[in-house]
Amino acid sequence: MTVTLTCRLAESAFDPWDELRQFAQASQGAGAVSSFTGTARPLSSDGEAVEAVEAMFLDHHPRLTLESMRAIVDAAARFGCDHRLVIHRCGVVLPGEPIVLVAAASAHRRAAIAAVEYMIDRLKTDAVFWKREDRASSSAWIEPSAEDRAAHARWEQ
């Protein structure tokens, strides 16, 4: 079986369902296809106050951002999935728009599910992005949450 690795930085909106359909087609022969789609939230959950988010801005590095994504896709080889995909937005992302698509396909389900969990957990802390949440009254640069760091840490045991 051939190995297919896709890793792309999307500068404009992408359709995760179309991407997933193509991914599943390219992974023919795999018995399991698993995926995660993250979309931009319409409400900010920073602290107590809940406020509408007007946009997210994802600042990125011209080379190191994609390199960090590739390193994560490569490291997920440990699960034995021959087909892995990460597509991540950069630039201005509007509420409801997809930010990230992670997918993995393998002969059996557990490897595909684990590879997807691993890739998204690592992306949430290690991917080279700087995110700004633009709300009606203010803007804030975001850092990974304690929950994100804990989700990452469980893969290092």
Binding site: H61, V128, E143, P144
Partner: peptide, 10 residues
Amino acid sequence: VEFFPPLSGG
């Protein structure tokens, strides 16, 4: 030279 604040992650 480039300067990186703490990463936000993806």
